[in-house]
Structures are given as structure tokens and as C-alpha cells.
Design a protein around this nucleic acid. Structure first.
Length: 480
RNA sequence: GCCUCCGUGGUCUAGUGGCCUAGGACACCGCCCUCUCAAGGCGGCAACACGGGUUCGAAUCCCGUCGGAGGUGCCA
């Protein structure tokens, strides 16, 4: 039997980190087993419809290179793969379930339900639908429906006995049917709820392994009841632990946590994000941390998945991202960094050299501008910056150092790092001052920054002779 | 409240009865290198939630407690 997995997001307008990881695992598991990975869009909630949301999903999966073998746009033998286009199917199966006793039509109004729910809550109990409409004879129900009375179809959960299912990670999960509610399967608008659509579609699409978040763990016994009523073979379940913001909050866009797209926009590399989230809740069983997608396809194993939820540690992602940046070919770095250099207004200088200096210092691309913008415009700075104990400098030493450096730099005709370096070093040696006593103040004088990506010589080179001398003169004046 | 699940350093994790005076990574701290920063090298801080069992022996098995999460929608 070939493995068939699916990623079934609802189009909310962006890709959650958690959703991305679910997609990744479902993809990896399929690839690892030479199986089929399917994309299915769960858009049965019309009120939540977000224009363009499906495109965002396709785009995110495309960028991450999580290629689906079947799904919207690519086709397949089990389509359509968008639930809103499968409407008639659900109605058909819902009524089949009614015939088999696993479900029944319900005419209760929301008002009745809401007040009942409130009563339960007031008593501190969990609301359960009272099967009020279960006794309505089927032909009477059909008559009312024919007349146009609004209705839903509810699952008919037995009042007694147990419901259960088996999960690869969590083992056997069993609950008393008495704790289960008769949930709505088919809504008044004729579309199914998740509680029904997932069962029907997973069956119809031949899904063998269901990988989804643990938020479905407690409702899965109910889904199994449906499989049993239909007489369908159950898939293998793998419930994935949640990704948290901290110990008690889920990672969520609403709380301002980044989505997959947000991370890419900030300047995280897709490969780094994928690598990082693969390791959020899964371990290869050894100390290895760096994986390409292809390597993950090889290494992935359900046994390595953790049962407890994981906190999304952006600092570690940032570290991993900087490692990816450091390891990438220089030309690739240059191409990706260029827009950020443009933003900082520094492309008129030797950007290639700047990029060489920056590649090893870039953690996330959006951190580039604040690191290099001083090159575009000399910032105001406090002369206290001239004081550095280890360099043995202070404003007084700085004044001497700058006075020494200025004529030396003026005499450099071929403005290159080597020539600047040689001229400066010769003068320093002759003066009897220490390297740091001249180079530190000089760097401060032309950058205005306590720390810069490169030393005085690199900065002077990037700035060019005219700008370097202009800044130097102003800083010298500032010391008087 | 009720139901289900989870519980190794601040964080991600290795660990499936002896290899554990618990390993790796991020973060943090210190030192070295060095004209700053970064990188690199070296070192450090820091965990088996708690309490009972079982066993010659428990992070690993059992029970309880506590803590956390998920579910409890005509959302998914």
C-alpha cells in the first residue's frame, strides 16, 4: 500500500509556522515512503473567507519547495481538492450516515441551543446537545426540509460505551461516549464542518496517514465512530504537538507572532526556517542540526517526533539563519543583500567589498540597514566614544591620533585598503603610538559608531578619500 | 468545571532499567585572538516537576500530587 498524506489548511490569509511544520512533516513522511503528498483546501467556513488566501498557501508551499503530487492546480484522481467544490459529496454522505443511524437531521434554532449552552455553563457542566431532534421520524424530517425549513445534520453519538482511536505517537486514546457531544456534521448552508469533511475526504482521497495538530486529539474518537458507521477503513493517525510562543500561549498571528511569510520578509532564509521548524518537535536521534530538504526526506522518521509541545525560540532560528547566510555562496549573498543596501543608501560605494565585510555579520537581512547606514550619513556622536580603556585612548589621545592620521591620509593617492593600511601603519610606527590608539579614534571619527562592520581602514576605503577626509576634519574640529 | 494529553537546564533536544558524577545545540557569562563588532578557539553557569513504590539498580516501569496545554462552536 502506498502512503498517501495530506496537508489540509484552511485559507486564513497567511501561513502559520505550525501549519508549515505540519505540511513539512506530512510531505517528509510521504517522500520518505515513496508516497504521495496531497494538498487539500478546507474552505468550508464561508464567513471566514479571505480573498486571495489560497494563493498565499500555494505560494508558501512553492517557496518552501514542498511539492504536492495532487491538489488544486496540479490535479489528481481524487479531486476536486477544494472542499467548497465538493459540496454535493458531503450532502450525499451525510444522508448515507443518516440512513446508517450514525447521524440525524436537527431543526433546533441557534436561540434554543445558545440558551441551553448557557444553562449548562451556569451549572459548570459541559454542554451536550440533548438529541432533541433524534426522535423526529425521518419522513417527517424530510417533509420539513422539502418545505424549506433550515436544518443541520448531527452525528449520533451513542449515549453509552467507549469511543477510541490509536495514534502512532500517543497510543490508544479512549473516552466515554457519554462525554461526547452530537456535533454538527453538515451546516445549515449545506457545507460540512471540519468534523465531517475531514472524515469523508480522507476516506475518499485514500489518505493512509493523517498528520495533524494535537488540537484534534480529543475529537478523533468521534471521527472513528463515523468511520465505523460508514464501514470505512481508518487511516493511521499521527497527532503533532503544538508550537508555542511560551509555556502557556500558542504561537499565533493574533498575538503578534510571526507567520511564515513574516519571517521571510524579515530576511530569514526559507531553508533556515524549514530546517529550524523540522527540529521543533522532531529529532533525528543524534546531534545533527543542519539538513537540506532532501536530507530531511532521508532522515525523517515518525519515531523522532516528540509528544510535548515546543516553544518557538526565535533566537535559535536567528543563529541558524546566520549560519545559513555564512555558508551561502558570496554571489547569492550579494543578490539577497542588495535591496537592503539600497534601503540603507550605500550602493554608491564598493558594495561588493561591503558585502564581503557583511556576509559573516548578517544574522537576518533586515538587520543590515542599521549596521551600515552610518556609511551613507555621518551620525552625530559623543566624544566619550573616543575613550576606550583597553585601547588606551581618550579625547586627548584621539586629538593627537587624528592630527597624525589626517596628513597621512591626504597623501594617499591610490585609495585602496592596502595603501591606506601601509601609510597609516608606517606613520603609527614612527610616532611611537600603539595601533589601537590611532585606529580606534580614527574609526570613531569617520563612523561615529562604537562598533562597525570592519575597522578604520575598511571604513575609510568604503567611504572614499573625500568623504573620509571631510568626516575627519569635522571630527577634529569637534574635539577643539 | 468536565474530558483528553503532556512534563530532561531559560529554550530546542539526546536518552526506551546499568554505557548518566545526564550528552549536543541556542542563549548567557569569562578568557584568548583582535583597530571596534562579528567570526573563531578555550572555559563556565544551568535540567531528569514533586512524592511514593517496583528493582541489586530508575530520567527510563507503576501509582498519586502538582504544573501546563488541547478540547468542550452550524471555526478549523
Amino acid at each position: 500500500m502506498t502512503v498517501r498524506t495530506r496537508f489540509a489548511p484552511s485559507p486564513t490569509g497567511y501561513m502559520h509556522i505550525g501549519g508549515m511544520r505540519t505540511a513539512l512533516y506530512a510531505y517528509l513522511f510521504a517522500k520518505k515512503n515513496n508516497g504521495t503528498f496531497i494538498l487539500r483546501i478546507e474552505d468550508t467556513d464561508q464567513e471566514r473567507e479571505v480573498p486571495g488566501a489560497m494563493d498565499r498557501i500555494y505560494e508558501a508551499l512553492r517557496i518552501a519547495d514542498l511539492r504536492y503530487d495532487e491538489g488544486p492546480g496540479v490535479g489528481g484522481d481524487y479531486g476536486p481538492y477544494v472542499q467548497s467544490q465538493r459540496r454535493e459529496l458531503y450532502a450525499k454522505y451525510a444522508w448515507e450516515l443518516v440512513e446508517k443511524g450514525g447521524a440525524y437531521p436537527c431543526f433546533c434554532t441557534r436561540e434554543r441551543l445558545d440558551s441551553a449552552r448557557q444553562e449548562y455553563e451556569a451549572r459548570g457542566e459541559t454542554f451536550k446537545y440533548d438529541k432533541h431532534c433524534l426522535d423526529i421520524p425521518l419522513d417527517e424530517a424530510k417533509r420539513r426540509i422539502a418545505v424549506g425549513e433550515p436544518f443541520v445534520i448531527r452525528q449520533n453519538v451513542p449515549l453509552t460505551g467507549k469511543a477510541s482511536f490509536d495514534d502512532v505517537l500517543f497510543g490508544h486514546i479512549e473516552v466515554d461516549c457519554s462525554t461526547l457531544d452530537d456535533t454538527v456534521l453538515l451546516k445549515a448552508d449545506g457545507l460540512p464542518t471540519y468534523n465531517f469533511a475531514n472524515v469523508v475526504d480522507d476516506h475518499l482521497m485514500g489518505i493512509t496517514h493523517v498528520l495533524r495538530g494535537t488540537e484534534y486529539l480529543s475529537s478523533s474518537p468521534k471521527y472513528n465512530l463515523q468511520y465505523e458507521s460508514f464501514g470505512w477503513e481508518k487511516p493511521t493517525y499521527v497527532h503533532l504537538p503544538l508550537i508555542m510562543k511560551d509555556a502557556s500561549h500558542k504561537l499565533s498571528k493574533r498575538n503578534g507572532d510571526p507567520t511564515f511569510e513574516d519571517l521571510l520578509q524579515e530576511g530569514y532564509l526559507c531553508e533556515a526556517v524549514i530546517n529550524f521548524i523540522a527540529l521543533l518537535g522532531w529529532s533525528p536521534g543524534n546531534d545533527r542540526e543542519f539538513f537540506t530538504l532532501q536530507e530531511l526526506e532521508e532522515a525523517f522518521d515518525l519515531k523522532g517526533i516528540n509528544k510535548s509541545s515546543a516553544i518557538f525560540d526565535k533566537d535559535k532560528l536567528t543563529w541558524m539563519n546566520s549560519e545559513y547566510i555564512r555558508r551561502m555562496p558570496f554571489d547569492a549573498y550579494l543578490a539577497l543583500a542588495m535591496p537592503w543596501f539600497e534601503k540603507a543608501g550605500v550602493v554608491h560605494m564598493d558594495v561588493k567589498r561591503l558585502a564581503e565585510l557583511m556576509q559573516g555579520r548578517t544574522e537576518v537581512f533586515n538587520r543590515i540597514p542599521p549596521m551600515v547606514d552610518f556609511l551613507a550619513e555621518m551620525p552625530a556622536f559623543d566624544t566619550a566614544l573616543y575613550t576606550h580603556k583597553k585601547m588606551k585612548t581618550d579625547p586627548e589621545v584621539a586629538a593627537k591620533a587624528l592630527a597624525l592620521a589626517k596628513p597621512v591620509l591626504e597623501c594617499v593617492t591610490d585609495w585602496q585598503e592596502t595603501t591606506i593600511h601601509d601609510a597609516l601603519m608606517a606613520a603609527i610606527a614612527e610616532s611611537g603610538m600603539k595601533n589601537g590608539q590611532v585606529l580606534w579614534p580614527l574609526r570613531i571619527a569617520i563612523s561615529g559608531r562604537e562598533s562597525t562592520p570592519g575597522g578604520a581602514i575598511e571604513i575609510a576605503y568604503l567611504l572614499g578619500k573625500d568623504e573620509t577626509l571631510r568626516r575627519l576634519e569635522r571630527s577634529i574640529a569637534g574635539l577643539q
